[in-house]
């Protein structure tokens, strides 16, 4: 079985981003970039399936500017077998990403695609569901557990009320939640080996699908600021303030 893992290069989760004062967007110059944390979890899950003998080949695919190749190399260093880099300098929306990924799925025929549940830059939480729709495949989103058995995938999902299990016909789409696994770090020898793993490159335009954005960003602003309040001396003062000053208890 082949597993396809779409990964996104995003601003590192530890970086506190800066909004440009003129409202034109977020300042990304010289900001540390990393693999989207949910995608690391997706790569890890695929590697575990291969280690368990369920998967034979893991393909990492990413769409973005030239530097995106570094992120694919990270996935290869973690243990993916080969990479596909779709070069594209324009901002893409999830629908455009899903369209390109559909082309890759059709070319590679994986039985399973594992994506992250959400990219931590745009916080969209859409691409996996959209890809599933375009392919007519079932989807198991926000997965905290994945079991494959007899042509079916059993996915435990993190939902608002607790956990839900769905059983999906394969091929299918799974999106990872935080507790699916704990991703490994790439070891130095594996980082060296990853440099020799195949990484195919193709411009997005060559896929011949419509990836034009549907949304126009009119402006990007700082959220309403919150000021630090006061430090109270003890529990008694806190209760007094909550009662008489804030009036919330």
């Amino acid at each position: 079985m082949k597993v396809l893992v779409p990964i996104k290069r995003v601003v590192d989760f530890n970086v506190k981003i800066r909004v440009r004062a003129d409202g034109s967007g977020v300042d990304l110059a010289n900001v540390k970039m990393s693999m989207n944390p949910f995608d690391e979890i997706a790569v890890e899950e695929a590697i575990r399936l291969r280690e368990a003998g369920t998967a034979e080949e893991i393909i990492a695919v990413s769409i973005g500017p030239q530097k995106t190749q570094e992120t694919i190399r990270t996935a290869l260093a973690m243990g993916a077998d080969r990479g596909i880099f779709i070069s594209c300098d324009d901002e893409l929306e999830p629908l455009g990403v899903a369209r390109l990924l559909k082309c890759v799925v059709e070319a590679e025929s994986p039985e399973l695609v594992i994506l992250g549940k959400q990219a931590i830059d745009n916080d969209c939480n859409q691409t996996g569901q959209m890809l599933a729709a375009l392919l007519g495949w079932p989807q198991g989103t926000f997965a905290s557990r994945l079991e494959l058995d007899g042509g079916k995938a059993r996915v435990t999902r993190e939902v608002d009320g607790g956990l839900q299990t769905v059983i999906l016909k394969m091929p299918c789409i799974v999106t990872s939640d935080l507790r699916l696994n704990e991703p490994r770090y790439a070891s130095l020898p594996n980082i060296m080996k990853a440099k020799k793993k195949p990484l195919e490159e193709k411009p997005a335009a060559d896929y011949g699908v419509d990836i034009a954005p549907r949304l126009k960003v009119l402006k990007t602003q700082e959220p309403a600021a919150r000021e630090a309040g006061e430090i109270v001396a003890n529990a008694a003062e806190l209760v007094e303030k909550l009662q008489n000053e804030a009036g919330v208890i």
Binding site: Q126, Q129, M130, A133
Partner: peptide, 23 residues
């Protein structure tokens, strides 16, 4: 934007060939 809404709405959007505006 509950886990239920977040699950089916993007699927609906893609079937209709439109974007989703999240949250």
């Amino acid at each position: 934007a509950t886990t239920t809404g977040k699950n089916y709405m993007p699927r609906l959007a893609a079937l209709l060939d439109v974007a989703q505006i999240s949250e």
